[in-house]
Design a protein around this nucleic acid. Structure first.
Lengths: 352, 352
DNA sequence: CTGTTAGCGCTTTCAC
DNA sequence: GTGAAAGCGCTAACAG
């Protein structure tokens, strides 16, 4: 654990000498402290002195050594991001926003993946902490609420994406999944459907249970019984959606609409229907969840409910900027509302 | 540029005191140097002493301060990864491999995005260098070959993904795009198609030109003239594919197959056809490029040519491990061969 | 406004 | 084998 790999001493490869604050101070004829001051411009330095220093910096091609800055200031200017998966349609858009927000503030982001596994998620946290991150942005699901509550008492500020824990709600950036689940099913119901199947994600995840809860609430509101046999737990992936749809089809029950807990499973399920000669949406209507880009460009275009994961990434980054780096300008919102996108995979039930 | 934001002193928030090497040395009754030695186990330390140190470390919950290690050793144990886009179907899988390979070796990855813009790409490089990265992995496209050649002469080792530059080919990890382009079109031609359209990516990119070159070579081999009007330059995105297909359709020319320079455009193009009532592959066959996951799960399943971007990410990480961190165990390969995946979007031409 | 000085936590000669 | 001591490059009191 503590053993380090050998590592090529960089100076061996160095072709350019890296000027230090000392070189600058000598060239400018001032003290080290003054050079430091103009870099950090937190104390007043006379314009003349400042200019001398700036000139010397330019002449020497001076670049501050961020490692030394970190050690001296006890602030690494880095924030760790730990997510479940680095691939898939979510991480990218979220990361884009985080990176942009943070780099603008001259912070850098260190990443790690938890692979939805408790041990790996904890290791990821440890890893990022030992790397001296000033703050952590976590989008993980396998660790317990208690672990995260404990974590947030530690010295490193932490913010959570896609997770709501009441005891630390001020650190949570999340989507109102129950409401989204309700909206999706409500849309289907408003179209006159009554025989509705549901393809769920892994039920150990809170967001999955919330979406399902919303689904049931909508059903109830339309006085339709929830049919447990028509509810399949799957894995959020395309192939899982295929499988689930095959099972649904093999039951030989009447189904006029399928509500899916995410777009990937919906896409798989639709593909299966089309292969079976079942028309979408003429025979079966579909609605997904998440509004990922891809299914907007297949035929039929997938109706869905939005999951503004990129916005949530941006918010988490802002939270860090505000809480850790004392940036006053940012506005932080924690709760996000889903939005319905009606496209062509869902239509009013036909009575032939 | 040199100005830093203010930053919360971490000790203000500290609830737990962080043990240092000094505390360990006192507790173990040895010197600082000895503690350092057992951490790095590069010098012999007697088993008894080592055990005392290890015990003290455990008792104190000691974690090395990586920042201090970096400053003292002039090695940050971090590698910078600069890519064009953080979102999209490529970055994720590539990143997964890089992160896994590097974290196993206890290195961390710092990321940045270049957004296919020369200025931003250069800034990204600067940013990562100033962050003290031991090495850089670059998957960028807007900067010139000369810039990269110059860069690779610098003190920070650099490796390039998805780019072939002859002068520095030992630092390039790339796909044989011409060959892939050839294979895609060859497959279509072998199916008897003669009226073939081509939807290309942005021609300023080398890989795009190579794919097109392969396309033309295949055509030539089958003695079919390349019809320039049937070749549309697009943007590698789904919507771009839609647009290109609309244009193709509006020409009212006979087209029995469309070769697309990537899967995203192919998906968009197929969706357009289906909306127009054109059957795929019965009326028009399609083949894509890249073999991204999603189009494998839509109907019809997309035939394509593989782009093992994740493998290339892994290789780049290994290159770094080998060249920078002196890891001898790894094997580095630089050139990757595309593979044909025949699915259901392409079929033999029908003569009715 | 500017200089002096003491660290930040760790690595690494150089002696013993 | 082990310890003493000199930095790594920078920040941040404290004086003046």
């Amino acid at each position: 654990m503590l053993v380090l790999e050998p590592c090529a001493p960089r100076w061996l490869l160095n072709t350019h000498y890296m000027a230090t604050i000392y070189d600058v101070s000598v060239m400018a004829g001032v003290s080290l402290a003054t050079v430091s001051r103009v870099m950090n411009n937190n104390t007043k330095v006379s314009d003349k002195t400042k200019q001398k220093v700036l000139d010397a910096m330019k002449a020497l091609g001076y670049r501050p050594n961020t490692i030394a800055q970190s050690l001296a200031s006890n602030c690494s200017n880095s924030v760790g991001v730990l997510v479940s998966q680095l691939d898939g349609p979510f991480y990218g858009p979220m990361m884009t926003e985080i990176e942009t927000a943070l780099r603008t503030a001259n912070k850098h982001v260190i990443i790690a993946a938890g692979h939805s596994d408790e041990k790996q998620e904890k290791e990821g946290v440890e890893f990022l902490m030992s790397r001296g991150c000033d703050a952590l942005i976590l989008d993980i699901e396998a660790v317990s609420d208690d672990y995260l509550i404990e974590l947030s008492k530690g010295s490193t500020p932490v913010v959570f994406i896609n997770r709501y824990i009441d005891a630390i709600k001020e650190r949570c950036v999340y989507l109102e999944n129950e409401q989204g689940g309700f909206m999706a099913t409500e849309h289907i119901l408003s179209l006159g459907h009554k025989d509705i199947a549901y393809i769920s994600g892994p039920l150990f995840k809170l967001d999955v249970r919330d979406r399902l809860k919303g689904h049931k609430r909508a059903l109830q509101q339309y006085n339709i019984d929830f049919d447990d046999t028509l509810c399949i737990e799957s894995d959020f992936k395309e192939a899982g959606g295929c499988e689930a749809m095959e099972r649904l089809l093999s039951m030989n029950k009447t189904i006029t609409a399928v509500v899916c807990a995410n777009d990937q499973m919906a896409s798989g399920a639709i593909a299966v229907c089309l292969e079976h000669g079942i028309r979408v949406p003429d025979d079966i209507s579909f609605i997904g969840y998440d509004n990922i880009p891809f299914p907007q460009y297949i035929s039929p275009k997938l109706s869905t409910v939005s999951n503004p994961i990129h916005e949530m990434g941006k918010m988490a980054a802002r939270w860090v900027l505000q809480e850790v780096y004392n940036d006053k300008e940012v506005i932080v919102e924690s709760s996000f509302k889903p939005e319905l996108f009606i496209r062509s995979s869902s239509q009013a039930i036909s009575h032939d």
